[in-house]
Amino acid sequence: MQQIPMDLSFRSAQDRDNFFISASNQLAADWIDRWPDWPGQMQALNIVGEPGSGKSHLAAVWQEQTGSVSLSKADADMVHRLMEKNAEAPCFILDNLSAENSDEEALFHFLNAIKSVQGSLLILSSMPIALMNWKLADLMSRLKAINVAQIELPDDMLLFALLEKYFAERQLVAPHNMLHYIVSRMDRSFSAVHQIGAALDREALASKKSLSVNLARDVLHKQLEIDI
């Protein structure tokens, strides 16, 4: 009888030691390490990358380092409230910022408030915020002045490390020959790591088989629908 796998959620390790550095994300990691020496009109950085690229991981590292407050939307009043409670300049994280989901006036006042108290801001987005379709000219000017670090598509070394980490966090032994097999055939994207990893995890559980090249071949054949 085939076992039906259950979708279980796992929390990925978010500390600095668990962030794998390669050419694709070196720039973003260097910017995080460089804080508080972020140049510009205000201490701000925009990390850009596709989903699963490690933006949130780097934000968690920075949050641990700075005690920053994570916000889903701009809040200028929050800046002033924190300054009243704490003499130190506050740090903030804005996740998944886009022109479509933002109140431009509120965001503009939020940026001005952070600048006025010499605070710091880390913005995470899937595309550079300066290239988004903002209508408020003053806001656009502010955003264009913010430092940008792009996380590029992963290279083979990073794909290998991310796949190995994915399985290790689920207490699955991933043979290196299987990982090399997958990396040489998979799409060059962070989302592919999670898609293939999840598919292999489900297949191993359902078939009660260990991870192997043969299992990976079957999964990739189903995923890519090609003869591999």
Rank of each mutant, 00 (worst) to 15 (best):
Met42Ile: 07
Ile47Met: 07
Pro51Arg: 03
Pro51Tyr: 07
Lys55Pro: 06
His57Asn: 06
Ala60His: 14
Val61Tyr: 11
Val61Trp: 11
Gln63Val: 14
Gln63Asn: 03
Thr66Lys: 03
Ser68Lys: 07
Ser68Met: 10
Ser72Cys: 01
Lys73Asn: 10
Lys73Met: 12
Met78Leu: 14
His80Glu: 04
His80Gly: 00
His80Ile: 06
Glu84Gln: 15
Glu84Gly: 14
Asn86Trp: 09
Ala87His: 11
Glu88Met: 12
Glu88Phe: 12
Cys91Ala: 14
Cys91Asn: 13
Phe92Trp: 04
Ile93Trp: 11
Asp95Pro: 02
Asp95Cys: 08
Leu97Met: 10
Leu97Glu: 08
Ser98Ala: 12
Ala99Val: 01
Glu100Asn: 06
Glu100Ile: 05
Asn101Ala: 06
Asp103Ser: 11
Asp103Val: 10
Asp103Pro: 12
Glu105Gln: 14
Ala106His: 12
Ala106Pro: 07
Ala106Trp: 14
Phe110Thr: 04
Asn112Gln: 09
Asn112Arg: 05
Ile114Asn: 00
Ser116Phe: 00
Gln118Lys: 15
Gln118Trp: 03
Ser120Glu: 01
Leu121Ile: 13
Leu121Val: 09
Leu124Trp: 14
Ser126Ile: 04
Pro128Asn: 06
Ile129Phe: 12
Met132Ser: 12
Asn133Tyr: 06
Trp134Ile: 05
Leu136Gln: 03
Ala137Gly: 00
Asp138Val: 10
Met140Gln: 11
Ser141Arg: 01
Arg142Gly: 04
